[in-house]
């Protein structure tokens, strides 16, 4: 299967960068990343520098891989880049591969971006303050199955950043909404829910992400199907916290 790849090459953060064309002939059974591995092997054999891209578990759970493929995060089907296979493309197709684009996700090299902004948002309040050893028995506080399931749906976020990449405003609200929701839903998370919402949103804004305009692109592209309900809950939690908390 012959393809033309147009891949973003950028030597380092301050380099201008450009799209470079590569013609490849590949086995259609390959995964998308295996195709890039294959290209990299060939580049290395020719003495050209391989293309840098992030990836790790290659089973769709670690959230490391993040390519903007033919105008969409993670490509044409709803999955992570590592789970995308070449049989979803056709002979002779030209594929544009770019890094996530957002001020808060600066390019490090080629297709690799820095997503540490997500970590800093979590550090701002994405936790329940419980020291090791001080927990009560696990069954002491029952949580209705429906609530636990809903919390799980939010907690399933893999922090890949596709939501930011897809959003026309580079907004991180789906990510932040999921982080806030998973704690706000369960009884253990209630004690800190106000301060958590206030601090995480403040950090999200400080990182320079855009604001949500409810286009739904984030959720539509999310490989783990985090729903827009998380953003509604984020709004509710934040506004409620701001109106009722003691933090002046």
């Amino acid at each position: 299967m012959k393809l033309t790849l147009k891949i973003w090459r950028q030597k380092h953060a301050n380099d201008k960068g450009k799209l470079v064309d590569y013609n490849v002939d590949i086995n259609p059974e390959m995964s998308f990343l295996e195709m890039l591995d294959d290209l990299n092997e060939k580049l290395a054999e020719r003495g050209e520098e391989p293309i840098a891209f992030d990836h790790d578990c290659r089973e769709g759970i670690c959230g490391t891989c993040n390519l903007y493929i033919n105008g969409r995060p993670h490509g044409p089907i709803r999955t992570t880049t590592c789970q995308l296979h070449m049989r979803h493309f056709h002979e002779g197709e030209s594929i544009v591969i770019e890094p996530w684009r957002a001020r808060s996700f600066p390019v490090v090299k080629d297709l690799i971006v820095d997503r540490s902004a997500f970590d800093r948002i979590v550090q701002a309040g994405g936790y329940i303050s419980v020291n090791t050893g001080s927990a009560p028995d696990a069954n002491e506080i029952p949580i209705p199955k429906q609530i636990a399931d809903e919390a799980f749906n939010s907690a399933a976020c893999i922090a890949c950043g596709a939501c930011v990449a897809a959003c026309k405003n580079a907004s991180a609200m789906l990510f932040v909404g999921a982080q806030i929701s998973k704690f706000a839903l369960v009884p253990q998370g209630k004690a800190e829910k106000k301060i958590r919402a206030e601090k995480m949103v403040a950090q999200m804004d400080a990182e320079g992400f855009g604001a949500c305009t409810n286009t739904g692109a984030c959720s539509a592209e999310c490989p783990v199907e985090i729903s827009m309900t998380n953003i509604a809950r984020l709004n509710r939690e934040y506004i409620g916290a701001k109106l009722t908390s003691d933090n002046v």
Partner: peptide, 21 residues
Amino acid sequence: RRNQKARPQGYAFSQPSANSS
């Protein structure tokens, strides 16, 4: 303005119609 600043460099190729109205 804020939203535009959040993405100073756009995509070379984008298909927004695939995911939003």
